[in-house]
Structures are given as C-alpha cells and as structure tokens.
C-alpha cells in the first residue's frame, strides 16, 4: 500500500509485520488475541523465522489463527495442540513449532498434554492466552476464571466449593524440569505489551537454542463475554486479574540466562 510508505523527510517507525496475514480477523473489537497475534508475527519477523515456522492452532476463539499467520499451519483437536506439535517437532526438529492456546484448551481439556510436553522438554513454544473465560462457546467458566467471577456457567460467581480454584499454569509448568522458560505477562496497556513481546521473543529464542519447552502466559481481555468496553476490559485485567495472576518470570533456564547475558554484552 502506497500510504504505508514514508514520505520524503520521514522514516517508518512501525508497520504491520510481514508474518501477519492480510486477512481481517474475526475477533471482537478490542480483543487482545489480535495483539498477541501481532506480537508473535513481529517476533517471527525479527528472528527471520517466517518460512521455518509451523503453527499449531487450537480450539477456541483462536481456532482460525492459521488464517492470520502467513506460515505453515494446522488445527489441533481441543487441548491436543501440544501433542500435535510434538509429532511435528519430532519429525522436523529443525523447524520452529509453536502452539497458540486459550485457557480452556490448555488448562482444562489439554492439561495432560501441556504438562507432558513440558515434562519431555519438547523444543516447542506455547503462547497461552488467559482471559479467564471460554470465549468461543459464549462465556462459560474457565479453569482460570477468578473466584466469584460470574460467567454463563457460573451464574452465581465461581464458587471454590463447586468449581475449585483459578489455575496458575505458568507457575505450575515452571516446576517441571523440561521447562526452559515459563513467564506471565499481560496485554492490558502499551508498557505491558512491550514486555510481553520481549518474553515472546525470548521464548522463541529458547526454542532456537534447543533448551526445552517455553511458554508465555498472556493475561488477555474478552470484552464481549465480560460485558465491558475494550478499555474497561484492560482495566479489569490490571485491577482484577493481575493481583490473582502475578506477572513475572517463573522459570528461566540457566542456559537461557547465560545467552541473554551474552546478548546484553
């Protein structure tokens, strides 16, 4: 597009990443799935991985993720993306393989698969979208829903006696020896988006270095099913989710820390 080229005496500061497909997304206005997609695409661009990468999309709102990345892709059954990614990565160990999974997919129906992919130290990367709700099916309780959170399947609020507690996947997976990198970031404002991108980049670098499983949990919004404006949704992440799901690095393998130290020098 001509209007995305700089004029004379201008320089380009930001342009849509190449790895992000030109297709319009089906996501609701303000949904941070789009932000996460864009950050992944930026990282793949910066690392020069576009034509080396295979995406395993999952079931949920991000089921069409394969339409939004210009990379080889497949679509896994609900929760099975880590298993499918294992099959691909074992066959093509020189390729970059990542799964993109929501909280129902990863922390509920796919809990076994994500734990074992980590335990085997599979050299894959998982981008985990935690928005505390099932988006695609219309706002049911997720394993990551907050205590007291009202959803269409917890109309009186999540009751721990009935439905247990919010699952802390980044912390849980950090406790597994095969995990090289497990961190939680948030997408609720520009500063946190920048931090999220750095983490995504580190996760892919961990895979490139072949040092084990890497996962970035991203606190995300679901304005439609939360019944809020996009702006209020970001505030809800900041005020309600972050206190329950602290941001931080829960596992950074020694090899990765050394690699980061080298790159800083």
């Amino acid at each position: 597009m001509l209007d995305t080229l700089p004029l004379e005496n201008e320089r380009l500061v930001y342009a849509r990443p190449r790895t992000l497909a030109s297709r319009y997304t089906h996501y609701c206005p303000g949904c941070t799935h789009g932000t996460a997609h864009r950050l992944i695409a930026e990282v793949l661009d910066e690392l020069g991985l576009q034509d080396e990468t295979i995406l395993v999309a999952s079931v949920g709102c991000s089921v069409f993720a394969y339409d939004y990345f210009d990379v080889d892709a497949c679509e896994a059954a609900h929760g099975r993306a880590p298993a499918m990614a294992t099959g691909i990565k074992r066959y093509h160990p020189d390729k970059i393989v990542f799964t993109y999974q929501g909280d129902g997919d990863l922390a509920s129906i796919g809990a076994a698969e994500i734990i074992h992919v980590a335990n085997r130290g599979e050299n894959i990367t998982t981008i985990f979208i935690n928005n505390a709700i099932y988006g695609m099916t219309g706002g049911q309780m997720a394993p990551t829903s907050l205590i007291g959170q009202k959803t269409t399947s917890s109309p009186f609020g999540r009751d721990t006696q009935l439905a247990g507690y919010p699952m802390h996947m980044a912390e849980l997976l950090a406790g597994i020896p095969g995990t090289a990198y497990s961190v939680r970031r948030s997408l609720h404002d520009a500063r946190h988006v920048i931090q999220a991108k750095k983490a995504i980049k580190t996760a892919f670098e961990a895979q490139m270095a072949g040092i084990g499983f890497s996962i970035v949990e991203l606190l995300s919004t679901c304005p439609t099913n939360w019944g809020m404006t996009p702006g209020d949704s970001c505030d809800w992440v900041r005020d309600q989710m972050v206190p329950v799901y602290p941001l931080g690095d829960f596992k950074v393998a020694d090899e990765l820390q050394q690699a980061r130290g080298r790159s800083k020098r």
Binding site: R80, A83, M84, G87, R90, H92, E113
Partner: peptide
C-alpha cells in the same frame, strides 16, 4: 506418549508434517 489420546494426536501432527 502420555496416553492414547496424545499418541493419536502426535500421529496426526507427524502425518501433517509428512511422516
């Protein structure tokens, strides 16, 4: 694999990868 469910989905992935 950790289960038959995982095994068949690994198979699916490898088949998709050309195995």
């Amino acid at each position: 694999a950790e289960s038959e469910v995982a095994a068949i989905n690994m198979v699916y992935g490898a088949a998709a990868a050309g195995a």
